[in-house]
Structures are given as structure tokens and as C-alpha cells.
Nucleic acid binder design. Structure first.
Lengths: 177, 177
DNA sequence: CACACCATGTAAGCGGTTACATGATTCC
DNA sequence: GGAATCATGTAACCGCTTACATGGTGTG
């Protein structure tokens, strides 16, 4: 899924909710895994140290001196970097939004950010329409090849999913306005 | 997506259709990309040489001596290795089948392999039912957290997709019997 | 006192991406 | 004759997985 260090933004995103340890982050990844993301400790801890190094997060001073726990919080730079990432698809130069990038961002949006939310839904909806048109074409082609029956089923499945998604986001947008 | 050298099986699968060059394989990957798979030349060519080394594929002797083209065909060992991979989820010890593994296999199944096809559809359908039940639970939990509105939408989307898939495979199985 | 869980890491290896390199053939 | 396409590779890098390593805390 990942291309440009997605884990970094997932961690920053979780830290916008509240301060956490690496262990806490792993718990949340595991719990919310099915919908979007997972990562092992061997990826999380080094990443936290890199984020610390580049001042996107900072250690929370503990009042308990005998704990090994390292609790992290966002710095103001970190907040900004996360927000920039969140809004990146809304840049005018970006004309499409794939499912992974979409879901990753959606995960961190609440009803309070309805502006960004609506724009992302619209962009994703638009991308889906293009993809649906493309798949309709592929479907008409593949039905003339009975030996590719499995592939035909895959296209039908993908089409059904994308149509269902498009309808869901469309209705969501209507709810807001 | 891949865990245990999936590319290897994709190449073998394509070569069950007909003999091909590495260049041909890339073309097909690009054309059928949306549904399942893609790979750059830098991955394909080394993989072909590895497959050649382990005698799963063989060079087709060319009657044109001045071409650089290398056309490959499956060996009998290669055919067997591919079939074993295709049927692996049908092993009694395997009780679930994720979407990636399912789609990858489905892609190479025609109406002539209805036996394997039906079994794979049933296994996938069964896995989906479990995942749907899990997501229903998560949905009731998340609705009490209005700040996680985005996550709620993701769960709704995933639920709709999985229910749609389950219905599609269910109907497919009925068609066959 | 054992077992589960809390808590933080390092090392090796592999699959996949991006960039680089080379040269033939075909079509306008 | 230039551009697109055919055709086959190598090298460097990076993210991710698996395995390994260590030790504290809480509960039955």
C-alpha cells in the first residue's frame, strides 16, 4: 500500500487525538486494522525515533521517574506536516484520489472538519466515476472471452464495489449540504 | 500485496494460456492491471531468469536467428507448481481466504475448472461472512464516538462491499448447481 | 511462581520501486 | 530521419516482514 512513508502520517494522525506511547499506537493499529492499517513494533519504534529526530514529535516529560515508558506528543511542526498531508489531495493539480489514500485520510476526519471531508468525498466520487466507466468497457470486452470467466467475475465484483462506494459518498455529500 | 513471491505464480499463470516473452507479460499486466496486478520490467526479467534456472519454464526455440526475443513456455514441472499454488487454499487446513489471494487465483480460472472455482467461491464466501459479522460489531461501537465519523464511514463502506461480494459469490455458486 | 501482558528495541532478508543503460524495429 | 515502440536487462534504495533479544509489571 505505502509509497512515501505512510506510517509516518498514521502515527502523526493518531497523536493528534492524544499523547501516546509506541505500544499504545500498536494497540490501536491492531484494533482498527481491518479498515486501514497495521504495522509491527519493529517498524513503529524506529519511526518514532526518526520523528523525534526531525522534531515532528516530542517526548512528554513523565512525573514518574522509574518508568521506561516513552510518551510522545505532536510538536507544532508535526501538526502542520500532518495537516499538509491531509489536504494534499485537495491541491488543484491533483485530479484523482485512489482508495488507499482516500481511506487513510478519511480515518482521521471527524464531523468538525466537514469542509475537508466533503472535498475529499467529491474528489473520490469523481475518480470512481472514471474507474467505473473504464471497467464497463473492460466488461464488454471480456464477456467475448469465455475462457477468461474468472477475470469477468473479478471485473463484475470491482464494478459492484465501486458503484456502491460512489453511491455512498454521493449520499454522504447530499446529507451535508 | 504479495508475501511469498506472488509474481512467480502470476507469470506461470499467464504462461498456461500461451507462450510469451517478458515484454508480452508486461503488456498484459498493464492491461489487466486494475483488477489484480502490476509489475515493472526490473522485476519481470530477473524473475523469468530465476524460473528458467529452476526449470519451471523453458525457452522456445526460435526459427528466426536474428531476433533478441526470448519466448518462454511452461515445463511440466511449472504446470504442476502452478496448479499446486492454485489449489492451495482448498487444503483442509486452510479455513479462510483473503481477497488478494482469492482474486489472484480467480483470475486464472475458466468455466472449464468449475470444480475448483466453486470451492474457492464457497471458501471466500465463508470468510466474508465472518468478516461481515466482525464489522457489524465494530460499527455499533464506533457510532458512539462522533469524533470518529470518518472511521464510521470507512466501516460502512467496507461492510457494503463485503455484503455485495458475498451476495455475488452466493449467486454464482447457485448458478452452477 | 508461572504466565500473560507491558514495553522497547535490533538484525537479516526480501519484494517492490525508481532510475539507469542499451540497442533494434516500425511507422509517419 | 525522428519518434514511438519493441526488447532486455542492472543497480540502488526503501519499506515491510520475520525473527531475535531483553526485561519489567500485574494477576491467578
Amino acid at each position: 500500500m505505502a509509497r512515501t512513508n505512510t506510517l509516518q502520517y498514521m502515527i502523526l494522525g493518531l497523536l493528534t487525538r492524544q499523547q501516546m506511547t509506541g505500544y499504545d499506537i500498536k494497540q490501536i493499529f491492531d484494533k482498527e486494522k481491518a479498515e486501514f492499517w497495521t504495522a509491527p513494533f519493529s517498524q513503529i519504534y524506529p519511526e518514532l525515533n526518526r520523528l523525534l529526530e526531525s522534531n515532528l514529535i516530542a517526548l512528554v516529560k513523565s512525573n514518574d521517574p522509574n518508568t521506561r515508558k516513552k510518551t510522545y506528543q505532536l510538536t507544532s511542526t508535526g501538526k502542520q506536516v500532518f495537516l499538509d498531508w491531509l489536504k494534499k489531495p485537495l491541491d488543484p493539480s491533483v485530479t484523482q484520489l485512489n482508495n488507499d489514500d482516500f481511506v487513510l485520510r478519511l480515518h482521521f476526519l471527524g464531523k468538525d472538519q466537514q469542509g475537508i471531508l466533503t472535498k475529499l468525498l467529491k474528489l473520490r466520487s469523481q475518480t470512481l466515476k472514471v474507474e467505473i466507466a473504464q471497467l464497463e468497457l473492460e466488461l464488454t470486452e471480456v464477456t467475448s472471452h469465455p475462457e477468461q470467466y474468472g477475470r469477468e467475475l473479478i471485473i463484475k465484483k470491482e464494478l459492484a464495489n465501486k458503484k456502491s462506494d460512489e453511491l455512498l459518498w454521493h449520499n454522504q455529500i447530499s446529507n451535508f449540504s
